[in-house]
Write a protein that binds this DNA or RNA. Structure first.
Length: 279
DNA sequence: AGTGTATCCTGCAGGC
DNA sequence: TGCCTGCAGGATACAC
């Protein structure tokens, strides 16, 4: 559910409120969302001051004042919610609650509990971050650089985009939207993309992701920002979930295919399939 | 190396 | 109304 734009939305919501505040209390009603031992998590985090709110790929990254870092991956249905004192009842699937100095709470809520929270020391976080691919919105990534990386893999380009070790932050919704925009079929082997196509994929990535951030993310069902509000990008999706509708570019039908265990949405007129493959 | 499958969970939509 | 099946934006482990 939460991909780069949704995580970025949450991070921007939290950033004005968390840095400088201390975690004075930690409650963990659902310990299975903690990677590692929940008791160790609590004692590592309690009493620490939050230094910043960042994003890396699909992870919310919360550096602490002792050099450690809390990393939150929202999985499919995770939410980080900001709760001022005295507001509302707790969410339906509260998994972790951080009490903050000065009042208020940061809550982690997760229906399916596929999300994970963990604390890493400085080298641990450095290693983890190094396992992730580059940020698509980072200026350092160029069309030539992306093309070179694509050359090393024969995986389908959609699978390549979903692999967090190759590029960070892209999930199934935006991968499909980006490939439609770039007019590249999702099953095309990564290494079969020419330099021009790689450039089109990169500029489409940037356009789609920034447009989605501007609309505060895509809510199909579960996503909420840190204040509990849905995002507004769903109506701007061109192919994702639009099987049978007309391609907004050419009018042909949008098709749903499945590979890698997940649905892909394509206009087979705009997006030529690789040779020898059914749509 | 890459792919298919299963797993972790719950809620919801659709068919009957 | 109820029961059943399939499906979901993610990550990971496994066998082939």
């Amino acid at each position: 559910m939460p991909e780069l734009p949704e995580v970025e939305t949450v991070v921007r919501d939290l950033r004005p409120h968390l840095p400088g505040r201390r975690i004075v209390d930690v409650e963990i009603p659902r310990g299975d969302v903690i990677r590692g031992d929940p008791g160790a998590f609590r004692s590592d985090v309690r009493g620490r001051r939050l230094e910043a709110v960042r994003r890396r790929g699909k992870n919310v990254v919360l550096p602490l004042d002792d050099g450690a870092t809390v990393v939150v991956n929202l999985g499919m249905t995770g939410r980080l919610l900001r709760r001022p004192d005295g507001s509302d009842s707790p969410p339906d699937h509260l998994a972790v609650s951080f009490g903050l100095s000065g009042g208020g709470h940061l809550l982690y809520d997760d229906v399916r509990r596929f999300g994970r929270l963990e604390v890493l020391d400085a080298p641990g976080w450095r290693r983890r971050s190094a396992e992730l691919g580059p940020e698509p919105l980072d200026r350092e990534l160029t069309g030539e650089g992306l093309h070179a990386r694509l050359q090393r893999s024969r995986a389908p380009i959609r699978s390549w985009l979903l692999d967090q070790g190759r590029i960070a932050g892209v999930g199934n919704i935006y991968a499909n939207e980006v490939l439609w925009r770039a007019e590249v079929h999702p099953r095309r082997p990564a290494r079969s993309l020419g330099p021009g196509e790689a450039g089109a994929v990169l500029s489409s990535l940037r356009e789609v992701l920034t447009a989605a951030i501007r609309r505060r993310g895509t809510t199909i069902r579960d996503f909420r920002d840190a204040d509990g509000r849905p995002g507004e990008f769903a109506s701007r999706l061109r192919v994702y979930g639009r099987e049978g509708e007309a391609c907004p570019r050419c009018g042909a039908g949008v098709e749903r295919i499945v590979f890698g265990g997940r649905p892909a949405f394509v206009c087979s007129r705009c997006q030529d399939p690789p040779s020898g493959v059914t749509p």
